[in-house]
Amino acid sequence: MGRQNLVAGALLVAVLVGLPAGIYVYEAGQRHQRLYAEEVIEIHAYVAEAGGWVVHGGALRVGVAFTLRLIAEDVVHGFFIERLNVTGTLVPGHPMEVSVLATEPGSYTMYCTVSCGPGHNVMVGRLEAVAA
C-alpha cells in the first residue's frame, strides 16, 4: 500500500469512525450536563396513539430541585403537571425546560393541555417521586 493510500485511508477512517464517535462524545457530554450534573428528567410527548408521555431518566427525588426537559415529537402538545404546578406549550423541535421541586413522594399526573388529536383526552402520564 502506497503512501497516498495510507493517507487516504487515515482520512477515511477519520470520517467513518471519527464523525460518529465525535457525535456520540459530544452528545454524551451534553446529556451528562443535562442528566447527571443537574438532576434532569427528559419527557417526550407523542400523540396518545403513538405512546403519549414517555419519561426517561427515572424519578424525582423529594426535596431536590430537578429540571424537566420536555420535547414534543410530532405535533404541538401542552403540559400541566398536578401539584408541581408547571405548565407550558411544546412545539416540535423546540425542547422546553422547567424547574420543579417535589415536596412529597408518590405519583404526579401529567396532562396534555393543547388538543393534539383524537387521543388528546386520554393523553395522561405519570411522573414518580421517591423519598430522598
Binding site: 487516504a8 482520512l11 477515511l12 470520517v15 467513518l16 464523525l19 460518529p20 457525535i23 420535547i71 415529537e73 410530532d74 416540535p92 423541535g93
Partner: peptide
C-alpha cells in the same frame, strides 16, 4: 468524494437516530 461521504454519514446518522420532526 470524502467530503460528500462525510455529509452522507451525517445524513444517515441524523436520519436514523435524530428527531422524527422532519423540519428539525
Amino acid at each position: 468524494i470524502l467530503a460528500s461521504l462525510a455529509g452522507f454519514v451525517l445524513v444517515i446518522l441524523t436520519g436514523l437516530f435524530g428527531t422524527m420532526t422532519g423540519n428539525q
